[in-house]
Every structure is written in C-alpha cells, then in structure tokens.
Design a protein around this nucleic acid. Structure first.
Lengths: 335, 335
DNA sequence: CGCGTTCTCCAAATCGTTTTGCATAACCTG
DNA sequence: CAGGTTATGCAAAACGATTTGGAGAACGCG
C-alpha cells in the first residue's frame, strides 16, 4: 500500500533494527560498519527499494549531483553529441545532466548562468561561446566547478577541453595543397569567437608552411550558419581572381557555400573545392558529400564530465588542467 | 566578501527588519503583506540578490521545479526540437528541463524512469516509445505528472500530446495520388511502435479512399534509420512489379531510400518518387530535397510542458486531456 | 584484574526553507 | 467606547537526510 519512493531512511533503520545513523554510514561508507550489520541493512534497502531524497541530501551536503551544459543552440547536432557524451559518464556516477540553451543574440548567457548557479548545480560546462571573463568568474565564485570547451587555459577560470582545432584545420588545408589547390579562400564565423580564431590560425599556418600568401580578399567573416555560408561564398567567389578552393569554418557554412556554387553553376569539386568542419550528420548527406574534419564531440562531452567529476569527488583544487582531443580528416567528394 | 548565492532568507529578514515568515510570504504571496513592508522586503531581496536554496525549498514542498523528457535518442533533431520547446515554456516558469536518453536496445527505459522518479522530478514527458503500461504506471504512482507523446488516451496514464500523424500521412499520400502515382510503396520503422502504426494507417486510408489496393509486397518494415531505409527500399524496389512512389515513415528512412535509388541509377522523382516525414533539417539539404510532412516538434514540446505546468500549478487532477497539433505538407523536389 | 584501545552503534544538532497557530495592533460597527 | 473583525507579523515545528560527540561492549596488555 505504501507507494514506491515514499519510504524514508528511518523506515529502513527500524526494519533492519538499527539507527538511521548506521544506515547512513553503510550508504556513505564514512565510518566502519560491521559486515553482518552492513549486509542486513543493504538487504533491507534492496527489499524496500529505498532511495534517499535528493532535496534532503542536497540541503545537508550542499551538493545536487547535477551537471550543467550551456550551449548557444540546443538543436545543433554537435552540441547534442557533447550532451550525450556527458550524460554517458554522468549517469554512471548517478549524476544528472541538464543542458541549457543560451542563444548568442542578446544577454541570455548571464541569465542562464544565474539560473544554474541559483540551482546549486555542482559543475558547469560552458560550450563554444563568446563568454566574458566576468560570466565565467561568476561560476567559479559560486563554488561550482567549471569546464570550458575551447579557449586558452587561464588560472581561476576552470579546466579546458578542446579539440585540436588549429592542427585539424592545418591538416585539412595541407591536404588541399597536396592535391594541387593554390588559391584557397576562407569563410569564418563571427570573428573573435573562439573556435573560429583557432581554425583560422590553422589555415594561415598551413598556407605559410606551403609558401602561399594569405589574400585579404579571399577571407570572409560571416556567421556559423547556412545563410552565412551563402553570403560568405558570394563574397569570395566574386573576387577579382576567384579561388580554386573554399575552406569553411564549419559544415553549415560549407553547405551554404554549396548552395551558392550550385546557383552559380560552378561544379564541385571540379570548378571549386569546398570543405567543412565538424562532420555533422548532414555533411555526409548532402551532395557532393563534404570533405571535412571529424570533431570528436561525444568524446569532448565525456572528457568534460570526467574532469568535473574528478574535481567533485577527488581533489577539489589543484592546477587547472587541459585536455586536447585528436581530430581526424574525413576526405569525401567535395575536394 | 560574502560570495554571491550564499545569503539566506534570515539575512534578508534581518536586513529588512522583519521575520523570515514575512519574507517567505512576500515571496509566495500565500498571506497578505502590507504594501510598504512588501516593497521594503522586495528591495532588499533585489539588493542582496537573494535566491532561495532549491534543496531546502524542495525538502519542504516536495517539489523540485524540474521537468523531464525521455527520448530514445538525444541526437535526433526531432527530439531536440521537442526539448527546446519544453525549455522555452519551462524556463519562463522558473522550471528546469532535463532530457534523458534511453536507447531502445535493452531495458534502459525502466532504469531511466527510476532515476527520474527517485529525483522527485515534478513532471515527465515520455517521447515516442514502446513504453509498457507498467513503466508509465510507475510514474503516475510516484506522484509525478505524466505526458505521453502519441498513443491512445487512457485513464490513469496521464495526458497526451500528438501530431495528427494519420491525417498527415493521409494528406501526403493523397497528394501523390493527385499527381498521378498509382503503385505507392511504404517503408515503415519497427512495426508496433506508435508513430509508425498511425502513419501506416494514414497510408492505408488514403489508398482506400482512392480505390487503390494495398500490395503486401510493396510494404516493408525495418527501423527508423538511414540504414533501415536502404534495406527497405531494396526490398520494395525489387518487387515483381516495382512501385512508382515510395512513402517512408520518416526522413532518415527516406534518405536511406535515396541512397538505394541512386545506387540503382533510378532518377528521383522521374523514375520513382520518394517522400519522408518529420521535416528534419537534412530533409532540405539532400538532393533532391525531400517532399515531407512538417512535424511540429517544437510546438509539441511547448504543449507538453504547458500541460505539465497546468497540472502542477493549477488543478492537479481532472480528466485526462489530449492535444492534437496540426501537420503541414511540405512539397519539395523528390515527388 | 584494572586500564586503555578499538569497534560498533546511537542521540541529537544541523542544513534553509515553508507553514501553522497565535499574539498584537488597527480598524469598524452600533 | 465596548466588542468583534480584519490586517499584520512572529515563534516554532516540520521536511529527510548527514555528521559529530560520545556511550557501551569487546578486547588486548601489563
């Protein structure tokens, strides 16, 4: 008759003939309990299906056993892959994961962070973002652990997980150079936003290493969207001396660039090569299939969650850490 | 020096020169408070940036102000759109949304539900699923509010939100008939899983209304994946008398069918028409762009959250409700 | 056999809210 | 102005767990 989930620690204690203290100790293992008592208590817990009330526990411990992920766009497959990776690790440690969307337009980020901090979320992962130092410091000051996805490692701003973006773009552009392309254009997202900067750096380094110049008129900055790709491609393809390849900062931009090329009756890759970055699902669905770089999103999520859990369950402080994950070139038809 | 988020209700009370009871009352409005006192308290709350501790509040009220969404695959854009819709509504009411993945392979669903129930989540949305009656009853018995996405309205199993799937497929197939197609094949996902059943029903009704027979060899059941689409299409296209159109239960299946058609050197839509369902982003990115039906996923999420909040904040019980959302045919190149 | 350790376990305080039962002050009404 | 309402605010008891200071029993040592 007593519904599931309603039994309390005191019920377990009386059923097992011990005090609530003892039950708590077998649960947490913070003090020794004799083997026979422990066995009896665990049996009762099992039989009654006892589960500690998270609010009561949270009130006492000041922990919520919850991890948060903040991303600019929750429907972006790259971001959901990160979320999936986090959940995989978190669930195994009985942590919950909440993912929050904070669009780039308007001051959504501070509000979302306030929400998360007010909720006493234990650890927060801030996704690829133009987050200000102030935003991030607010998280750290609240006592929550912080992991950033990308950006430089800085003291007092949590740990960092990132893909080897610069190296990935370097390899991609070198790949193009190796296949004979010489006038290689670049379409970036919003300038100054982190992953864009690093990818652009890889582009420049690769050209430099090949002894090729960076033409200012072959570089366009727009936004990380399909529409951005269309306008960016229009700009670089109309240069006085057009490019033979267009490197895009992500797959959505590249798909937009494909639109523009198709509209201009330019064959890909014969007329112009086009490449993306991230390897989202659509990259292999469009035609021609995009040459791109695999962004190990799920693995990024796993690493970020693991970093947070280490800080939470193991040594709380210590020097800031950085995890860099390997990229992988995915050659397909568009180059 | 006192960091943000650390101030308690007693601090607010003493700063404002009132008791904690009064502060609580201005917060909840459950008892009248004089205008001048209220103003003073609200000012102090503002100035100090007070935010009630959710664990303490949850312990007392037995509410977590959290909504949950359970889906088979968190990276499916359809599901993330639902999540985004839920979050939009939930956040406005200061509720958090957590989305949990419970893959169809293996007994993940009961475990995830247990987790959510143990966490005292206030309301749970169970996505398109082969959920058993037992799973759902467990949720209701725990006291959490339940909304199902699809399936028949049944007493004691919460409210239902669904798209008009049968009608949507009916319109789509009727559209094909109107354009002259006569041998129309169908590729479904796993048989018995809800959205598939309803879509198949729409397919049959439309053929029936047009006086066309349902050929057993033109119906294939696989899985809701691109790979499923490939195998399903191989089956129906190799029928003794091949179809002139292939209707797929969702977009991923349709994209897989496009693969098969391309491999068989069949032009689409000249050789065979292919249609999808859901209108995921990739549907407009592939070539030829898919004729499909817009599944109002975001709106579904919004409605589900609203339903939950109504139960939570308004009248708790009452007859089970069902919300049916309109579909919309999206004609593109593939038919 | 007395005394100090080490094992076990318990009672009670605590975390920060909400909510109920009263006390007091203020206000009408006749 | 007495008597009864209504407004206003307070003190104290929950909510269900964790954690600390000890109590009693068992054990070893001199």
């Amino acid at each position: 008759m007593h519904g599931a989930g309603r039994i309390k620690i005191v019920d377990v204690a009386s059923e097992a003939g011990v005090s609530v203290t003892t039950v708590s100790h077998v649960l947490s293992g913070r003090r020794p309990v004799s083997a026979t008592t422990r066995a009896r208590v665990e049996d009762v817990i099992q039989r009654l299906g006892y589960q500690a009330d998270p609010s009561a526990r949270g009130l006492r411990t000041q922990r919520t056993r919850t991890l948060g992920l903040v991303v600019p766009d929750i429907t972006n497959p790259f971001n959901t892959a990160i979320a999936a990776g986090m959940q995989e690790i978190a669930l195994a440690h009985e942590y919950l994961t909440v993912v929050c969307e904070a669009p780039m337009d308007g001051p959504h980020l501070p509000a979302v962070i306030r929400q998360l901090v007010a909720r006493r979320i234990d650890g927060i992962v801030v996704g690829r973002y133009g987050a200000t130092r102030q935003d991030l410091e607010g998280i750290v000051a609240s006592g929550a652990k912080l992991v950033r996805l990308g950006g430089p490692l800085a003291p007092g701003l949590g740990d960092v997980v990132r893909a080897a973006e610069t190296e990935g773009m370097y390899d991609l552009v070198s790949h193009l150079v190796g296949r004979g392309y010489r006038r290689i254009a670049y379409i970036g997202g919003a300038p100054g936003v982190e992953p864009g900067e690093e990818r652009f750096a890889g582009y420049r380094k690769a050209l430099e290493a090949a002894g090729l110049p960076v033409h200012q008129e072959l570089v366009a900055w727009t936004s990380f969207t399909r529409e951005g790709g269309r306008t960016g491609a229009t700009a670089v393809l109309n240069a006085t001396e057009p490019p033979d390849a267009v490197v895009c900062a992500n797959d959505l931009i590249a798909i937009g660039a494909l639109d523009t090329a198709r509209a201009a009756e330019l064959r890909v890759p014969e007329g112009v090569a086009i490449t993306g970055y991230d390897d989202i699902e659509a990259a292999s669905l469009v035609s021609p299939a995009l040459t791109t770089v695999l962004n190990p999103a799920r693995e990024i999520g796993r690493s970020a969650a693991q970093l947070l859990l280490d800080r939470l369950e193991g040594e709380s402080s210590g020097p800031a850490r950085e995890i860099v994950l390997a990229h992988r070139l995915v050659p397909r038809e568009s180059a």
